[in-house]
């Protein structure tokens, strides 16, 4: 394991003996000459939420897109359950039990909830035709658990509210027995009630033993939900800290100044207020 940056802070103890679900080692991605992700290593354990934070352009979404298969890494290594894997596209990622809820939700607006939930993994009858009835039944089952008031199963998702669309995207990620969940700004477009629902869901999935990467620019969100927090700045990993061992100010210091909690001078700490 190669998360030496955590040395400054006490690592999360209870998960330490177990094998990580995901290890990303020395991941690099560049666009043109720009190093969007520059040698970043992070890991994720079962039943753990790792918050990935950083300002705009810090590279957190780009890093996570290498894991979800949306944009493969230029170099670096990804291990799932200790086995090195190659992820070229979203299909590869799904095959390893990695599901992603994108910030944009990645829904086909013209299709209904069931068609979106099963997009790329359609249920079919013996003749190979789409089994829309079975897909709708499964969709009703999974979405009504997430959002009991969801009723519009036959309309294009375009005509749904933001919260309902989010429900569809989340249902798609959790329906297929994901072990690793990537949530990119899952509450950015939601009202308070819906945000609370998503938070409950994260807690529940965590209890079920999933590993969750939570990407957010909202430090409060991350502090409430994450067990560990990895901070990125300008494509590099500032460090990974145990949430219980740091204050919000210290994490802000990492986000803004790129300095680990111990390295923060009192003067710099003043500036954060």
């Amino acid at each position: 394991m190669d998360v030496t940056q955590t040395a400054a802070v006490a690592p999360a103890t209870p998960v330490e003996e177990r094998r990580p679900l995901v290890e990303m080692r020395d991941i690099r991605v560049s666009f043109g000459g720009v190093h969007a992700v520059d040698g970043v290593s992070v890991d994720l354990y079962p039943g753990e939420v790792v918050g990935l934070v950083g300002g705009n352009g810090a590279g957190k979404s780009t890093l996570i897109r290498t894991l979800s298969g949306a944009r493969p890494a230029d170099s670096g290594q990804i291990l799932v359950n200790g086995e090195p894997v190659t992820i070229h596209n979203p299909r590869d990622a799904r095959a390893y039990g990695i599901e992603t809820i994108y910030q944009t939700l990645a829904l086909a607006d013209n299709l209904d909830a069931a068609a979106n939930l099963f997009l790329g993994r359609e249920l079919r009858t013996r003749t190979g035709a789409l089994d829309d009835v079975a897909m709708e039944a499964a969709t009703r089952g999974v979405i009504s658990r997430l959002n009991p008031r969801f009723k519009n199963f036959k309309v294009p998702v375009k005509s749904l509210s933001g919260g309902q669309r989010q429900s569809v995207a989340i249902a798609r990620a959790v329906h297929f027995d994901a072990r690793i969940l990537i949530m990119d700004e899952p509450t950015a477009a939601l009202g308070p009630a819906e945000t609370a629902q998503v938070r409950d869901l994260i807690t529940q999935l965590k209890r079920e033993g999933l590993g969750i990467f939570l990407i957010s620019h909202d430090i409060h969100d991350v502090f409430d939900l994450a067990d560990r927090i990895s901070v990125m700045l300008q494509g590099k990993l500032v460090g990974t800290v145990d949430k219980d061992a740091v204050t919000k100010d210290e994490v802000l210091g990492m986000i803004i100044m790129g300095k680990l909690p111990g390295a923060l001078t009192s003067q710099e700490e003043e500036q954060l207020h």
Binding site: T104, A106, A108, N116, G120
Partner: peptide
Amino acid sequence: NPDAAELGG
């Protein structure tokens, strides 16, 4: 949504 289709595998 071409991107969603691609991300859907």
